[in-house]
Design a protein around this nucleic acid. Structure first.
Length: 97
DNA sequence: CGTATGACGTGCA
DNA sequence: GTGCACGCCATAC
């Protein structure tokens, strides 16, 4: 049985895992897709506590274009994004349309 | 159960 | 464009 909170967390994982290669979503977008557009705070928190490699949480960035953070190190996150084709400059995501 | 924290976002000076 | 303060939600202690 899962409460709304647990469902939200589960949905977040599903959404993040569903992100295509080279694609990046913002915390707000993920929260919105998870059903709680106001829980972007919790999204970051959940991913931070999460250590599941199955989830490409490195594809989740901030709305202002910054890479945000990463439990394995921001540098690691940037490296992965760049490796996937995302342009990153000085911790800023320069994603093309 | 209540408090504190955090990978955030928006508003205002 | 930069800096500071408040709000918002889930999780941990």
């Amino acid at each position: 049985m899962q409460n709304d909170k647990s469902k939200f967390k589960n949905k977040v994982y599903k959404v993040v895992r569903n992100i295509s290669c080279g694609k990046v979503l913002t915390y707000k977008e993920v929260a919105k897709l998870a059903g709680k557009p106001r829980a972007y705070r919790a999204v970051g928190n959940i991913l931070n506590k999460n250590k599941n490699k199955q989830i490409p949480c490195h594809r989740v960035i901030r709305s202002n274009g910054q890479v945000g953070g990463y439990n394995q190190g921001v540098q690691r996150k940037i490296a992965l994004l760049k490796k996937e084709g995302v342009i990153v400059r000085n911790k800023i995501i320069l994603k093309r349309e």
